[in-house]
Write a protein that binds this DNA or RNA. Sequence first.
DNA 1: TTGATATATCTAGAATACTAGATATGTTTT
DNA 2: AAAACATATCTAGTATTCTAGATATATCAA
Lengths: 97, 97
Amino acid sequence: MEISKILANQTRVDILKWLKNPEDNFPPHQDIDHFNDGVCVGYIQDKAGLSQSTISTYLNAMQHVKLVIPTRHGKWTYYKRNEEVITNYLEGLQKEL
Amino acid sequence: MEISKILANQTRVDILKWLKNPEDNFPPHQDIDHFNDGVCVGYIQDKAGLSQSTISTYLNAMQHVKLVIPTRHGKWTYYKRNEEVITNYLEGLQKEL
DNA sequence: TTGATATATCTAGAATACTAGATATGTTTT
DNA sequence: AAAACATATCTAGTATTCTAGATATATCAA
């Protein structure tokens, strides 16, 4: 799915917004005391209130266009924003529109 | 339809882009020698290569969220960009994302 | 007023997005 | 190795978007 369609979904936009300030939007992780690699899927799912498979599908699509970066830590996959891609997209939109 | 979904369609984005420089993208109008009120539906349709009803539907949706401003001149309806709304939307996106 | 032209709206089928349940995979713990 | 847990993928039903043909409306020209 292309980036403009990914950002046409409110939940996916919300996820990106939440990931700007994980401390404000999610409880602290157990094994890791910082959000350097982002937030685990389960927390994002709880916050979004959608099913596990739906959130996983969303994150996969976002990762495909590099809006987010996944990092595996044991059982968990943490997702964080890819600021470069986000900024680049916004600049491109600014210019073309 | 909300604005982010409207901008998730390439043809609709193209239309907005074309309307930035009507002189470069459309032939001159017959009865009017400027593009002050924008471009007539027929020209936009020719350029986009989609059916008349589809383009009319697109323009109607875009007008609904005020991305474009229609002006009636006789038989023709001219559409032009609503720069204020476009700029405002981009600024909002910049801030929230 | 009749016919021609431009645009808008109605209707409907095809394509895509949305979403969840079931199942698979990978990791940790016992 | 088995059980438990987190995440990913598969499958499928529902909803929305896409698009065009048919029809309606509005304006102009004869």
